[in-house]
Nucleic acid binder design. Structure first.
Lengths: 410, 410
DNA sequence: TATATTCGTTCAGCGCCTGAACAATAGCCC
DNA sequence: GGGCTATTGTTCAGGCGCTGAACGAATATA
């Protein structure tokens, strides 16, 4: 019956329009990656003909996505080329992080720069979805107005939510921390919008943070990496070949409940020896002899960092031990996924100086392919706004994948 | 610098030839999935025009990949269509499983049927790479001759190896159980070949077994599952959304070296407490009080199965313990990837009746999403030959992705 | 100033898909 | 049986996108 199952991801026909789409995306991506660049150098880099590149660049200029920047100052023989750069004001995305302790909106341009940011702190837990989404709509309205003032055409709005999201229906199925069940976020927001909005999409905040890291960090385009987010719990966003892997049912990335010590302390989840029991913030604080985190994460993190900077042996040993446990988990990830980079986010980013060495030791010892293909470990590039920025970059990624769609439609 | 990283997996230009390639692959895949099918129904299924489908089918007929099968017997109004089927003798692949306990070669046709099979049992551990590869070359020579006798054009040879494979260089970097390091398998085989061979590729056996399972098993095309292959070592092939995930550098799926007991027995890989040290066949045999596998896996497996069928408490406990260790690894896989199915292959398939219950218990306890999204555990559809069949299907998959390349080249 | 080199554009040519038109073939109804 | 309808498969002009060569433009070197 099924036998040789076809490559399912693209079960639709292709025609010349797709060729143009693909090549336009290729040209724009090349400019984004290595600007400034002349048409001839783009042709050399992409393998396209100068004629084709010229034609595509014309379209991109009309779309306002790239700009000519006078003749190239690059020294060399022959006629100098015309430098092309990404238009800083060519396109923007709006991203909202909708979290338990407040709302944050950002406007991000094609260069990944945050051009506008507004945060509205405040507990969202007991306000109800309708009230929260009304506030969100007002925040988006203001961000759209700000983008308009900045001369930025907004290509889409992304919403980051801490919960399980049905991407097809664009519905938040379950967000325990917000107390939401089956909230059709996009539909509701549309009804609250004051003016016409561009396309709105919802996604899980951890996923979007990983995407933000992928796009804003210093990554090679086809990277595979894991964003390990440390807090009281430990989660992971897995990006394989530049694509986020969400899991077949939206339950992926639970690194915190990897078994590190089968006979270790019991975990909330019911199992024993879970990673977050011996590498989470609570464990580190206890082991370092500091009081547990009662309020926000920062309240607990600041004294820990102060103690570490004082070269306190007990605190350093605690973080080192956590780092070695984390290393077991990271090694498992690398052995299974063969990612080449591990990005440490959340408190792990702050603790990176003390985590780095012991983590590397364990990873080097436990990753089979380590001698041939070293694993890079580095702290996250984006801070706490990673999810909002990832949400804003989401529509920009769609634009980059099909740069001429907007022009053709408009 | 990098900012919005482009979709990298395809950093090369596209032209009309790629359009043709893609659409030809689409048409052939449709025939493979739902044969027999008329041109008109292919057009309806793919979204292509009848004109385009007609043209592509002409090419596929010339290439000998599909056959016309008289007028359709499908009852209906109007002129009946001409049924098209995949040509059973249109193409074949040769697959070799190169394992510790012997060599197996198969010839598989486009329908996934095994048309030829030869197994050469015998311990390969201490023979040295040169001797093993010479035997392999002779086996491939005989398989190519057999395919020729059957009238099957062989489109490629796949080699399945239990170890880390560098897919780019086609070199086995490390195969601990064979005692291999940096063996350029394809290059060596080429020098041992008697006659001209088609393209040869090496890949990890677990990956290939997963591909075999994906293509031959009763899977939906977009399934996500993990095939856990048990032998002396333990490997995993991860299939996400119907695509095998090899890892960014081809080193993925090393489930056997997941840390299960950080202070456990030392492993060949240099680390401690690796899963295959406490769930591999060697460990099970030792724990059950049976002699270690000296010759083939079967020589060791048969008495083990006999003992188990006799309800021997010690053997059942040994397998149960291995199953619980395996459960820790499987739970890690599921927590990270959120796959909905775990397929047990190799000796784990044979031991399934005794593994099933203890494995399920551990998985249920350690998988976070288990209460909401149960994990299915089942034995592999393909038997011990899964890796060999997957290896043989590998070149056929390449053919399916670009059906007209061979014709155009020839 | 003359030559070599490189850049960007233009244009004919080709391949591929589309959509309409057409002949072929079958069932259905009178 | 004869018309009518429905469906299949092919043919052909048309459009689109890429290629490759030719050409003018601009700059460095001799």
């Amino acid at each position: 019956m099924s036998t040789l199952a076809p490559d399912s991801s693209r079960r639709r026909p292709t025609d010349q329009a797709d060729v143009r789409r693909h090549n336009a995306a290729l040209v724009l991506a090349t400019v984004v990656a290595d600007a400034p660049l002349s048409r001839a150098r783009i042709a050399a880099a992409t393998g396209l003909t100068r004629a084709t590149v010229g034609s595509i660049v014309d379209d991109l200029l009309v779309a306002g996505l790239v700009l000519e920047q006078g003749t190239s100052s690059a020294t060399g023989l022959g006629r100098p080329g015309t430098d092309l750069v990404v238009a800083p004001d060519g396109a923007a995305g709006v991203g909202v992080e909708l979290n338990v302790d407040g709302l944050t909106v950002v406007v991000v341009d094609l260069e990944g720069t945050v051009r506008h940011r507004v945060a509205r702190p405040g507990d969202q837990r007991d306000r109800g979805a309708a009230a929260v989404l009304r506030s969100t709509a007002r925040l988006v309205d203001s961000a759209l107005a700000a983008a308009s003032d900045l001369g930025l055409p907004v290509h889409g709005v992304g919403i980051a939510v801490p919960g399980l999201v049905d991407l097809g229906e664009q519905v938040v199925r379950l967000a325990p921390n917000l107390g939401w069940t089956d909230v059709p976020v996009v539909q509701r927001l549309a009804s609250y919008a004051e003016a016409a909005w561009p396309a709105v999409t919802v996604d899980n905040e951890a996923n979007l943070a990983a995407l933000g890291e992928l796009w804003s960090g210093d990554h090679a385009p086809s990277d595979s990496f894991v964003l390990v987010n440390g807090d009281v719990g430990v989660g992971a966003g897995v990006v394989l070949d530049g694509r986020l892997h969400r899991g077949s049912r939206g339950f992926g990335g639970e690194l915190g409940h990897l078994t590190v010590a089968p006979d270790g302390p019991p975990c909330r989840c019911g199992a024993r020896g879970c990673l977050e029991q011996v590498a989470g913030l609570d464990w580190i604080l206890a082991e370092a002899g500091l009081p547990p985190a009662s309020g926000s994460t920062d309240d607990a993190l600041v004294p820990l960092l102060a103690t570490l900077r004082d070269d306190d042996a007990r605190a350093i040993a605690a973080v080192g031990s956590a780092a070695r446990s984390l290393g077991v988990g990271v090694a498992a990830l690398v052995n299974l996924f063969d990612v080449d980079t591990v990005v440490l986010g959340g408190v792990f980013a702050d603790l990176f100086p003390w985590i780095d060495v012991p983590l590397r030791e364990v990873v080097a010892a436990r990753v089979l392919s380590a001698p041939w293909a070293p694993v890079r470990v580095r702290p996250a590039a984006l801070g706490r706004d990673a999810a909002a920025i990832g949400a804003a970059l989401s529509p920009l990624r769609a634009l980059l994948a099909d740069p001429l769609a907007a022009t053709l439609a408009g």
